[in-house]
Amino acid sequence: MGAPRVLVIVPAHDEAESLPATLDELRRKAPGFDVLVVDDGSRDGTAAIARAHHVPVVSHAVNLGVGGALQTGFRWAMARGYDVAVQLDADGQHDPAHLDALLAPVLRGECDVAIGSRYAAHTGYRAPLARRIGIALFAAVVRLAVGQRITDTTSGYRAYDRKVMAICQYDFPKDFPDSPLLIDLARRGFRLAEVPVEMRRREAGRSFYTLGRSLYYPYKNLLASLMVLLKRPG
C-alpha cells in the first residue's frame, strides 16, 4: 500500500469573496494536498474562481446545503480512490496549517472521524455568551447520546476516513451536519476523536448560520439529534 491519498473538500456557497484567499492559503501552507471545491449552487461565480485557481470544481445546479455538498465530495473522493477526506470551509475560518494535526489520528488508524475543535484545548477563541451556552448544550446532548465528550459539535473542520465516506456518500443526515451527524456516526460504530485547532473569524461573505437562523438552529439541531437516536441503524 502506498501513501494514503488525502482530498481536501471545500464546500462553497456564494463564497466568491473568500474563496481566492482560502485556495491561495491552501496552496501555500498545504501544497501536497489535492483540493476539490464543491460549488453548492452559487450565483456569484464561485466555480469560475476555483477554475482560475486550477482547482477542480463540482457544481450543484441548486443549493443542497453543507451536508449535501460534503456528500458530493465523498462521492467524488470515493470514485477517485482517496483514502481520507478533510472538510475545510471556504470562508477562511480553517487554517490549513492544522491539516497535518487533524489528519494524524485518522492516518494512524486511531479514529474514523477527526474533529478540529476550538475548545478541546485553550486556543484563544472565545465565543459570545449565548453561543457558549448553545455549545455546552450540544456537547451535553452528544455526550448523553454517544457517551463521548465532544467539545466542538459545530466544527466544520473534520477529517473522515474511507469507511465513513463509503457509508456517507449514499446515506448522510444532509440537513444537519453538526451534532446529529456526530451522533449518527457514533451509532454506526465509527470512532470519533477531537484535535485542538485554532479557528479565525470569517473574513468575508455570509456564514451558513445567519442571524435569523440563530434562534431556529438550536431548536432544529436539538430535535434532529433526538430524531437520529430514533432512527433504525441502517
Binding site: R27, D34, H54, P56, H60, T72, R75
Partner: peptide
C-alpha cells in the same frame, strides 16, 4: 442534483476543459 454535478464534471474532464486531477498548479 449530485449525480448531475458529477456527470457534468466528468464530461468537462473528458473534453479537457479543466485539470484532470486535483493537483494544484
Amino acid at each position: 442534483t449530485r449525480e448531475l454535478a458529477l456527470v457534468r464534471f466528468e464530461l468537462e474532464e473528458l473534453r479537457g476543459d479543466r485539470p484532470a486531477m486535483a493537483l494544484p498548479a
